[in-house]
């Protein structure tokens, strides 16, 4: 893929944002000082589009983007799973226990990152999640080991 094609992708990325801002009910409402609420937002979006156009037309547009070849479907799946896992750990650690969720998360990610031995994954994820648990508990955060199981660190 070249820089120019990359810039087209960026343009595609900007379209929903542009639609959101320009069709919003706040963008064109004037404030006390006469400035529209969305004035600065819209100006900055304009800059974004101008510089994407500069990428398309400017020097180096035909240069190749080297890393982009490494994008692959299994990798994308891993990323999606990682994102879901991160959200799950954050929102559910109180309900399901921090150490439990975090070690599951770590096990999955270390498997994704190329760790293959099940024993290695198990030991690693348990040690790291316990260490993180101890560290944050000592700092005064309210974390649990398993659902409902808590140790007071006060």
């Amino acid at each position: 893929m070249t820089n120019r094609q990359g810039a087209y992708c960026l343009l595609l990325f900007m379209v929903p944002i542009l639609i959101y801002v320009f069709s919003s009910d706040w963008a064109f409402v004037p404030m006390r000082d006469g400035v529209l609420i969305g004035a600065f937002t819209m100006m900055y979006l304009g800059f974004c589009v101008i510089f994407i156009l500069a990428m398309i037309a400017g020097p180096g547009a035909n240069e190749l983007l080297e890393d982009i070849g490494e994008i692959n479907t299994p990798g994308l799946v891993k990323i999606v799973l990682f994102l879901l896992g991160a959200v799950a750990v954050t929102f559910w650690h109180e309900a399901y226990g921090f150490v439990m969720l975090c070690s599951l998360f770590l096990a999955a990610v270390s498997w994704f990152a190329g760790q293959t031995s099940p024993v290695g994954i198990l030991i690693y994820s348990l040690i790291v999640s316990t260490a993180l648990y101890l560290l944050f508990s000592l700092l005064g955060f309210d974390l649990s080991i398993a659902p409902g199981l808590k140790v007071e660190f006060l």
């Binding site: 309900a95 399901y96 439990m100 398993a146 659902p147 409902g148 199981l149």
Partner: peptide
């Protein structure tokens, strides 16, 4: 996990 949650809750 569900069982564990139930017991604790």
């Amino acid at each position: 996990m569900v069982a564990a949650t139930l017991v604790w809750s």
